[in-house]
């Protein structure tokens, strides 16, 4: 009984950890895409210019 409970708890814990990983990876992806595609600061805009046009991000 106790063993089953521990196993269930471990499984729940593992699930939570993998959800945290998934959310973390999505957040990192969001930061990278914001920098590459949407940051409006003119330095960012000029350096990313050609890639933004080629990828059809609405950039200016």
């Amino acid at each position: 009984m106790n063993k089953t409970k521990t196993a269930t708890l471990n499984a729940t814990h593992a699930t939570d950890m993998s959800l945290v990983s998934i959310l973390g990876a999505a957040a990192l992806g969001l930061v990278l895409l914001f920098a590459a595609g949407f940051a409006q600061a003119s330095v960012m805009h000029d350096t990313a210019h050609d890639q933004r046009h080629a990828m059809a991000f609405p950039c200016h």
């Binding site: 990876a25 999505a26 992806g29 990278l32 920098a35 050609d50």
Partner: peptide
């Protein structure tokens, strides 16, 4: 810069694919 920002953008997209 075009090479660099392509790497950044596609790494971002790849993260969403992996998610």
């Amino acid at each position: 810069m075009t090479v660099g920002f392509n790497m950044v953008a596609f790494t971002g997209f790849a993260l969403f694919l992996a998610v």
